[in-house]
Design a protein around this nucleic acid. Structure first.
Length: 871
DNA sequence: GTCCTCACG
DNA sequence: ACGTACGTGAGGACC
């Protein structure tokens, strides 16, 4: 059996990975995509090859003999992107931690290292696999040396393999001849000149016939085409030089120690730590956690005897800090508002050595256990539970301020993650890896232990990042407010909703008929692909924008065509109606529960900026902008004996901008103005307030919005359908009128660049790793984010403060009225008829005084018997 | 699972 | 030259 060595061309694979894997960053803001891609390729190769030896080669950035011969060598290469450069030293450290040999030598290129090691290993009777993204290495292929070139296709890595025979098959020349082909055709990437007028085709033909350039030169007069003949003669010196440059040295002086390259255990503690730090979650699964199990598991104990359970609870009640884990019985969804709480288990951790898990059974029911947890939450100083809101229907909490939800803390510390679970917190805060295959008992204990042990660390981090107050005074209290809102839900007139849907349905059928008629065939109007073909190919309409996959049929494109083509108007109407029917009429109907109400979910850990989001269903995007859509709001009604009171902040984001920038003009405008957009128009266009035209006002309004979004002339020009130049002029005028805003936005970007994150008035942070990107588009995005996040985030903070205040007042005064919806700058209260005035006072007071800014916060309020009327 | 489209602030 | 406005969630098509 021949032994095998795998040789990896480090820089080349890292480079491939960098361009093939979407941008990733870890919590420190370090880019990790190339490292991640590299490791994936590494693991795949090792799984396939099972080699005895392994080495990764790297280039040192030092001149090589090729530069001495030809200073322009590799001269045209672009410098490495910063995001890639920073990953190079890290991958070297990671490889070292994995006991993988690396080799680099000043004055030698990776190719020469690969060639020399490969050659010497083959001579020792070994098989060699060279992994490189660079086709130059194909010249090294032999019967025993296999060149493997990974390619990323749609996220999957496929590898092309080349032995000598495969090179011949694919390129028509042997690996050795491959060098001569390159000498003739040159290589712009490496700045190898080659012979002018000879490309790949001619070069291959010549070498196939003559075997090498020397022999070709001897028969130079016979070469075809005549151009090749003439130029090879004329540029013969250049051809010889090119051949030398193109030839990989297989006899270089390389300090290679085969024994040091022996492939051993990669899954070390150090490597594990690196993977954790880099947040390569799915690669961590490769580490054998069983063998290196966490010490804490010693103290995990399942208890089933009622007496012992009682005793454990009694002991826990005396503790200061208790971590809790709750597991639902597999396959059994925990009913949120039901009393039969199903089967599952709860776990408690109230000391590093006191970690218990208790399965529910016929005697020790979940109801009993939740009762105990309720008692516990009352007694202990700190009651810690992940996703607390989810369990508040089962655990009644009296002392809200004694609760701690680690999930919310983790969100504040890094709001960019897709999801937050206790396994992540265990890993990130406690350096604890929980085996995915662990049993339910063990997992539940870990959940309780993680809750218990992470509090101190999370609090410290919140302190260090100056977000403790934000956590204690906004996020934690808000959790309870949101629970109350979800629990209350909103009443829907199911019958009216059904009728609305049916009316849409018949109109849709009608439109369908007309559209098929005009198109001359039946097709799926909802398929952008089919629609594009019908409109832009079959009917020959002028097509504007394109998407990655075909023609764009987006509304802004169709809007432009609608005046000239009746079918387009009908398609637009069809789109609107089907949207209303599927998402809203039919969609919402599916969420109405037996109490006649929709109990959606308000998510607190989704957005990057601190806003709340709404799901199942989304109650924050109910139509309003078109009358037909707006009618839907008539089915959102208060219960008998109640009315809706709706309150929304007037231009809260612009007011925050005025406050944060301190711009005197804007502040003054807000202190006086009824109509800020008109004032803006008047000041920006230098015309008297009363003479501002509608168009001017509309433009000023768009600029105001643009400023909040992180203005760009392109974006504004799109929005207003004007040229970029005109848009740029608007912006310049705006900044001249409000110089404080220009300064503020610039400072926001500078700040975010310096610290790596944008920050709100209340200290909420939003990391902006894109600012470090070398990619213009990415970086510009980062700049806009850095301008927008403090504004949008502060607005979210203020609204959260108001919500907590409103809810607290309603409860404190034992009112029947309740807060039921939040839509970013709007609150909806279902007010008991006798309490309407009080509710209005509370809403106005709490919302307008949630923050004291340099400009007044103004709230508009309306009552109604449905949401349509109240808005 | 990803893309496109579109509903909201 | 690059190809965007900021922040979301849901449905339908298509792979």
């Amino acid at each position: 059996m021949r032994e095998k060595i795998v040789l990896i061309d480090g820089h080349s694979i890292l480079n491939r990975a960098f361009y093939g894997v979407p941008d990733l960053t870890n919590a420190e803001g370090l880019h990790t995509n190339a490292i991640y891609g590299f490791l994936n390729i590494l693991f795949k190769i090792l799984d396939e090859e099972q080699p005895e030896y392994l080495t990764v080669t790297f280039d040192v950035h030092a001149p090589t003999f090729r530069h001495e011969m030809y200073p322009e060598y590799k001269g045209t290469r672009k410098p490495m992107a910063e995001e890639l450069r920073q990953q190079v030293p890290v991958i070297k450290e990671v490889l070292q931690a994995m006991n993988i040999a690396t080799i680099e030598k000043a004055g030698l290129e990776a190719d020469d290292l690969l060639g020399t090691i490969s050659h010497s290993c083959e001579e020792k009777g070994m098989d060699v696999a060279i992994i490189s993204g660079d086709r130059d290495t194909l010249q090294l292929a032999t019967e025993h040396v296999k060149i493997r070139i990974p390619k990323t296709k749609q996220g999957r890595t496929e590898i092309e393999d080349y032995f000598a025979s495969d090179v011949k098959e694919k390129y028509g020349v042997t690996p050795t001849e491959f060098i001569d082909v390159k000498a003739l055709m040159g290589d712009t990437a490496d700045n190898i000149p080659g012979v002018p007028g000879i490309g790949e085709k001619t070069a291959t033909k010549i070498i196939v016939e003559y075997g090498n350039i020397e022999n070709a030169h001897e028969h130079v007069s016979e070469l075809k085409p005549p151009r090749a003949s003439k130029n090879l003669d004329e540029f013969w010196d250049q051809a010889v030089l090119s051949k030398t440059l193109a030839t990989i040295d297989i006899h270089a002086d390389v300090p290679f120690d085969l024994e040091a390259a022996r492939h051993g255990n990669m899954y070390t503690k150090e490597a594990h730590d690196y993977f954790q730090r880099l947040q390569f979650k799915n690669l961590l699964g490769r580490f054998d956690v069983e063998a290196d199990s966490n010490d804490v598991e010693e103290y995990f104990k399942e208890i089933t005897e009622k007496a012992e359970i009682e005793q454990v609870f009694a002991e826990a009640m005396k503790a200061k800090l208790v971590g809790v884990g709750i597991s639902e019985d597999a396959g059994n969804v925990l009913p949120l508002f039901a009393h039969e709480s199903g089967y599952g288990r709860i776990s408690l951790a109230y000391d590093r050595e006191k970690i218990y898990t208790i399965p529910a059974d016929m005697e020790v029911t979940m109801d009993y256990l939740f009762g105990k947890l309720t008692e516990l939450a009352k007694k202990v100083d700190t009651f810690v539970l992940c996703n607390l809101k989810k369990y508040l229907s089962l655990i009644s909490v009296e002392k809200e301020e004694h609760c701690f939800d680690p999930i919310l803390a983790a969100y504040l510390l890094n709001p960019l993650k897709n999801d937050y679970d206790f396994e992540d917190i265990a890993r990130e805060q406690l350096n604890l890896i929980i085996d995915e295959k662990a049993d339910e008992k063990t997992k539940s204990c870990y959940e309780a232990y993680t809750a218990f042990a992470s509090v101190e660390i999370l609090k410290k981090k919140l302190d260090e990042t100056k977000m403790k107050k934000l956590f204690d005074e906004i996020e934690m209290p808000l959790l309870f407010t949101l629970y109350d809102m979800e629990h209350a839900g909103v009443k829907i007139e199911a019958d009216a909703l059904k009728t609305y849907g049916e009316q849409l349905g018949s109109k849709i059928v009608e439109l369908e008929k007309n559209i098929y008629d005009k198109a001359g065939e039946v097709f799926n109007i909802n398929s952008p692909k089919q629609l594009g073909v019908i409109l832009f190919e079959k009917m020959g309409l002028p097509n504007g924008k394109k998407t990655k996959t075909g023609y764009s049929t987006a509304a802004d494109v169709l809007d432009k065509l609608a005046p000239d083509y009746p079918i387009v108007s009908e398609i637009l109407e069809y789109r609107q109606l089907t949207k209303l029917k599927s998402t809203y009429a039919d969609g919402l109907a599916g969420f109405i529960q037996t109490d006649g109400r929709i109990h959606g979910t308000f998510n607190q850990t989704i957005t990057a900026t601190g806003r709340i989001s709404s799901t199942e269903p989304n109650l924050q995007n109910i139509p309003i902008r078109t009358e037909l859509g707006r009618l839907l709001r008539k089915v959102f009604v208060p219960e008998e004996g109640y009315v809706f009171v709706d309150a929304d902040y007037s231009q809260i984001e612009l007011r925050i901008l005025a406050h944060c920038s301190g711009d005197e003009q804007l502040i003054q405008a807000y202190r006086e103005a009824r109509d800020i957009h008109r004032i803006t128009a008047s000041q920006v266009f230098h015309i008297p307030f009363d003479e501002v035209t509608d168009l001017q006002r509309r433009n000023a309004k768009a600029v105001n919005f643009g400023i909040v979004y992180g203005i760009s002339s392109f974006g504004l020009s799109q929005d207003l359908s004007i040229t970029r130049k005109e848009a740029a002029q608007y912006i310049e005028n705006y900044f001249q009128t409000y110089p404080g805003i220009k300064t503020f936005l610039d400072e926001s970007v500078e700040n975010a660049k310096e610290h790596g994150y944008a920050v709100t008035l209340y200290g909420r942070r939003r990391p902006v790793p894109e600012l470090k990107s070398s990619n213009f588009m990415q970086r510009s995005f980062g700049e806009r984010v850095a301008m927008n996040a403090p504004i949008q985030g502060t607005a979210a903070d203020i609204m959260k403060i108001a919500m907590i205040g409103v809810n607290r007042e309603l409860k404190k005064r034992n009112m029947k009225s309740r807060l039921i919806l939040q839509v970013h700058d709007e609150l909806l209260i279902e007010a008991y008829q006798d309490e309407v005035e009080e509710v209005q006072t509370i809403l106005k007071d709490q919302m307008e005084h949630a923050a004291e800014l340099k400009v007044p916060l103004i709230v508009d309020m309306h009552n109604g018997n449905n949401w349509y009327e109240a808005k």
